[in-house]
Amino acid sequence: MSKTVLTTSEIQFANAEFLPEVVKILNEGHTVTLRLRGYSMRPFLENDRDKALLVKPSSIKVGDPVLAEVNPLHFVLHRIDSIEGDNVTLRGDGNLGVEHCKKENIVGAVIGFYRKGRKEMDATDAWKWRTYSYIWTRLLPLRRYILGAYRRIWIPIFGTI
């Protein structure tokens, strides 16, 4: 009897090429699980470790994590910091600065995260995420120091996983 050996490979694309296709899939009503790239949502979401489950946004509010096109073909996954009319201000949990877009440029809403290789999703409407969000968003003046300690002390000792 012969054995069939299956192999898998991973292909990486630039966000400017890949994310417009993700937007098309979301607009068709499908969900998309997206591996996170970048460090803007530290300390709780890590580059190339965690995944986000996205849907087409139906309504947005302050505090929601969203995928937005802030410039042509430049997408970010950040939390909504404020909404004033049609203007939306976004801030990554690991960022001190903000980015801006229009409501129409919010292309995906995050309904949950798969963190640290877990199979169970941390839903953004569950108590765990809401509690974390409540605390973290109010620590804005102290984030610089917390993130600095995380990068300089925690990661060298314990890593990101």
Results as ranks from 00 to 15, higher is better:
61 K>G: 12
46 E>S: 15
45 L>W: 00
155 I>F: 03
57 P>E: 08
32 V>T: 02
58 S>M: 14
39 Y>L: 04
15 N>S: 11
113 F>Q: 02
20 P>Y: 11
54 L>R: 02
5 V>F: 01
5 V>P: 00
34 L>W: 01
117 G>Y: 04
143 R>Y: 06
121 M>G: 02
46 E>D: 13
20 P>A: 09
139 L>I: 03
10 E>Q: 15
29 G>R: 13
57 P>G: 14
141 P>C: 05
24 K>T: 11
57 P>D: 07
45 L>G: 02
63 G>I: 09
129 W>C: 04
60 I>A: 12
4 T>M: 06
21 E>R: 14
158 F>I: 01
122 D>N: 13
138 R>P: 01
129 W>H: 09
16 A>V: 11
157 I>N: 02
26 L>G: 01
153 I>K: 07
110 V>P: 02
83 I>A: 05
81 D>Q: 14
106 I>S: 05
112 G>I: 01
156 P>M: 02
27 N>H: 13
105 N>H: 15
115 R>A: 09
130 R>S: 07
45 L>M: 07
14 A>K: 05
83 I>Y: 03
31 T>Q: 10
95 N>W: 06
155 I>P: 01
81 D>K: 15
126 A>C: 12
118 R>K: 15
8 T>K: 12
58 S>A: 13
117 G>P: 06
72 P>H: 15
113 F>S: 00
105 N>A: 15
83 I>K: 01
149 A>I: 10
138 R>M: 03
25 I>P: 02
118 R>H: 10
23 V>I: 09
91 R>K: 13
3 K>P: 00
97 G>C: 12
55 V>H: 07
22 V>K: 00
95 N>M: 11
77 L>F: 14
89 T>Y: 05
68 A>C: 12
52 A>L: 02
28 E>W: 06
143 R>K: 11
5 V>L: 04
114 Y>P: 03
40 S>W: 00
4 T>D: 03
112 G>C: 00
38 G>Y: 00
83 I>V: 11
139 L>W: 03
60 I>F: 08
37 R>Q: 14
140 L>V: 10
16 A>D: 10
38 G>F: 00
149 A>Q: 08
2 S>G: 10
64 D>E: 06
69 E>F: 14
87 N>E: 07
115 R>F: 06
95 N>K: 03
42 R>C: 09
49 R>D: 06
45 L>N: 01
134 Y>A: 09
87 N>M: 12
155 I>K: 05
33 T>E: 05
30 H>W: 04
124 T>S: 02
70 V>C: 14
9 S>P: 01
151 R>D: 11
28 E>C: 15
100 H>T: 11
115 R>H: 09
145 Y>Q: 09
91 R>V: 14
144 R>F: 10
131 T>D: 07
1 M>E: 08
46 E>N: 15
34 L>C: 05
16 A>L: 06
104 E>S: 14
42 R>S: 05
12 Q>D: 06
159 G>Q: 01
66 V>C: 10
24 K>H: 12
28 E>R: 14
6 L>I: 06
41 M>L: 06
43 P>W: 07
28 E>G: 12
19 L>K: 03
141 P>G: 03
19 L>Q: 02
149 A>H: 05
111 I>V: 14
136 W>Q: 02
78 H>A: 13
153 I>H: 04
26 L>P: 00
22 V>D: 02
6 L>Y: 10
154 W>G: 04
141 P>T: 03
129 W>R: 08
88 V>Q: 04
156 P>C: 04
76 V>G: 13
85 G>N: 08
158 F>K: 01
56 K>M: 10
47 N>I: 11
